[in-house]
């Protein structure tokens, strides 16, 4: 599936791919040291490990001739982590022993999550630098509340029909509120594109799968015997198909976003990411990780980053004199650590 390529702006330079210069051999040592020191220190070092790992990846991700910088302080991450883990333990205790208080806490958490998501996005933007300037995220609580709490509920209530709206809103929220050097990033996303993609990548394959399930079950019933094995294969088949659909859907969303992203009139993104190729990379990564008991993780991460960077192109205006940095003030990492622990993934 190939989305229409965005209009290439002639005033900008030629499209150039981003570049990832990290090496598996280099990163392997960092990864293993991180793991080892984290275990020796019973997890305390993991905050430093996170900084070390992300710094390596940011420092090796090049846009034009410059790499990104990562500026989180490990101590800050550690504090955030302690608070988040403490809260989660308290929540678990409350869940088992004080159901009333637990319900109350869950309601509070429901309203706190948009705030935490904003904190996380602000934190991640602030600690990312490019050409000496930091990114900035300015979100709005109620917009985040609508995007991350209300829309998922509406999606379920509409039996998935509103899923493209929810996804488009989420991506829009994350990217349209980002700015760099005083200029806004914009993702010109349309509902039509998201609905078309949803139809192609999710609805049609699921209908096809259901048809197949119907036919196989009918054959099974006629054949008698061997039903148990047949059911087993069927359940696994359905499970993996849904997993594949989910991953491809995510990849396609990424492609839509990186075709629509621009930084004011100074930079445009486009991409040549192939869903099947990326799917293959992710899947073979997983197999390699399982078969090497985790030792292939550094290789897998480097491989994925390299593919993504090689297939995201930018056209840039060479004049950066219009970009102005703003003063930095300290930012809490609680939101970011919360998102980390709850496995919230927010674009990028």
């Amino acid at each position: 599936m190939q989305e229409p390529h965005p209009q290439l702006d002639q005033s900008l330079g030629k499209p150039r791919p981003m570049r990832f210069s990290g090496l598996t051999s280099e990163y392997f040592g960092i990864w293993l040291s991180n793991l080892l020191l984290s275990i020796i220190t019973l997890g305390i070092y993991s905050a430093w490990a996170k900084v070390r790992r992300l710094q390596y990846f940011y420092n090796h991700t090049y846009l034009d001739d410059y790499a990104f910088g990562y500026h989180a302080e490990a101590i800050q991450i550690l504090k955030g982590r302690v608070i988040v883990v403490g809260t989660l333990i308290l929540l678990n205790i409350a869940a088992s022993f004080f159901p009333v208080i637990y319900t109350f806490l869950i309601i509070i958490l429901f309203f706190a999550i948009p705030y935490l998501i904003n904190l996380s996005l602000e934190f991640n933007a602030k600690i990312t630098s490019y050409r000496n300037l930091r990114f900035k995220f300015s979100g709005d609580y109620w917009e985040a509340f609508l995007t991350f709490q209300i829309m998922p509920i509406l999606t379920v209530l509409s039996l998935g029909l509103l899923a493209p709206v929810a996804v488009k809103k989420a991506f829009g929220y994350v990217y349209n509120n980002l700015s760099y050097g005083g200029k806004h990033l914009t993702a010109d996303l349309t509902y039509t594109l998201f609905y078309l993609m949803f139809l192609k990548v999710v609805v049609l394959p699921i209908l096809a799968m259901l048809g197949l399930v119907y036919i196989t079950t009918a054959i099974q019933l006629n054949l008698d015997g061997g039903i148990e094995l047949g059911m087993f294969i069927l359940v696994f088949g359905v499970y993996f198909t849904i997993l594949f659909i989910f991953v491809i859907y995510r990849i396609c969303c990424l492609r839509l976003v990186f075709n629509a992203l621009r930084l004011d009139s100074y930079m445009r993104f486009s991409n040549t990411i192939s869903s099947t190729r990326l799917l293959w990379i992710l899947f073979s990564n997983l197999v390699a990780i399982v078969f090497t008991v985790g030792l292939a993780i550094p290789w897998a991460q480097v491989r994925k980053s390299r593919y993504l960077c090689d297939n995201i192109q930018t056209q840039t205006n060479p004049d950066f004199s219009d970009f102005i940095g703003t003063a930095q003030k300290a930012q809490s990492s609680i939101g970011e650590e919360f998102a980390d622990f709850e496995g919230v993934e927010l674009g990028l």
Binding site: L35, S38, I39, L42, G43, S46, A49, K50, R53, V85, N285, I289, V290, G294, I297, A300, Q301, D340, F341, G343
Partner: peptide, 17 residues
């Protein structure tokens, strides 16, 4: 607790695993 603190922030290892 130890496993999740150590691997928690490490991408690529799923919690189920």
């Amino acid at each position: 607790a130890i496993a999740s603190v150590i691997f928690g922030a490490e991408e690529g290892i799923s919690e189920d695993f």
